[in-house]
């Protein structure tokens, strides 16, 4: 158990926020949409509000819980988009290694990769207006080349293995080999990378919300909570501390979890630690 300390700490942190998000679907201590000016800017623990209230008198604990939901939903779907498009593209490129298709896919990838993600987000919101959906699309597009590149690189080395040669001799097509033999060998890698991308997605969502391009009010979001607390930080620091800690702990947790998973899957490290 101690060997996988990172994995355990990461899993606990990540699960805590996942749990908060799931619970918020059914129950929050207070209604996050209800504005109660008379109870504004209550300090944590001052009253029935555990984390205090914001400038509109909304309960911060409830907002953090629902904010976790927003973050997780956006990041999860964005990583999903990245995998859904990125992995097949990478497999296709690897199966036509050195061919025109390979070049085409990988150069397009480089193009998207070189493009700043925030710029894509600003462009999308300029055309379609700011919303959580558009934040998902922007982060998702940014995730595609990450998975495509990773998949291609790993797939290429699998293609060199003997059992692939056997499959080819047996007359299987490149597509079948990719799906039946290559992909299962990449799963560990993809899960690890997915976890890392998931944490980056949460950061990206917070960043976009901070500049006003993410989920729109009244949907709570950690990034927007931070942005709104800015002018009040000198007399009501709890407004910034709670969403700030939420972002830091979730991202830290997911990163530790991802690292831990990699160590766990890596046979060399496993053997070495024995």
């Amino acid at each position: 158990m101690l060997r996988h300390r990172n994995l355990v700490i990461g899993a606990v942190l990540a699960l805590a926020f996942l749990l908060a998000a799931v619970v918020s679907l059914f129950w929050t201590p207070f209604d996050v949409a209800e504005i109660d000016i008379a109870n504004k800017l209550k300090k944590p623990g001052d009253s029935i509000y555990l984390f205090g209230t914001d400038h509109f008198g909304r309960d911060i604990l409830s907002m953090i819980m629902v904010g976790a939901r927003t973050s997780i939903a956006v990041a999860l779907v964005a990583v999903g988009i990245g995998m859904l498009f990125g992995v097949p593209l990478g497999l296709a490129a690897a199966s036509r290694h050195g061919g025109v298709l390979d070049e085409l896919i990988m150069r397009t990838n480089d193009l998207v990769f070189a493009f700043p993600a925030l710029l894509i987000a600003v462009m999308i919101t300029a055309v379609f207006g700011p919303s959580a959906i558009n934040a998902i699309i922007a982060i998702g597009i940014f995730n595609i080349p990450v998975f495509a590149r990773l998949t291609r690189g790993a797939a290429l080395s699998v293609w060199q293995r003997d059992f692939i040669l056997a499959a080819r001799v047996a007359g299987k097509t490149a597509t079948r080999i990719s799906l039946e033999h290559i992909l299962p060998n990449l799963l560990n890698l993809l899960i690890v990378q997915g976890t890392i991308q998931f944490s980056l997605g949460i950061l990206a969502e917070a960043g976009l919300s901070y500049v006003g391009l993410g989920a729109q009010p009244p949907t709570p979001s950690w990034g927007r909570m931070l942005a709104e607390s800015q002018t009040m930080i000198s007399f009501a620091p709890h407004l910034a501390l709670f969403p700030g800690f939420a972002i830091v702990l979730t991202v830290l947790g997911l990163n530790l979890f991802g690292d831990g998973l990699r160590d766990y899957f890596d046979p060399r490290i496993r053997r070495g630690s024995r």
Binding site: A33, E34, I35, I37, H55, F56, P217, P218
Partner: peptide, 11 residues
């Protein structure tokens, strides 16, 4: 800010 408050009141 006024918008968020009014949206809540209209709701």
């Amino acid at each position: 800010r006024g918008g968020e408050i009014i949206a809540a009141q209209l709701r």
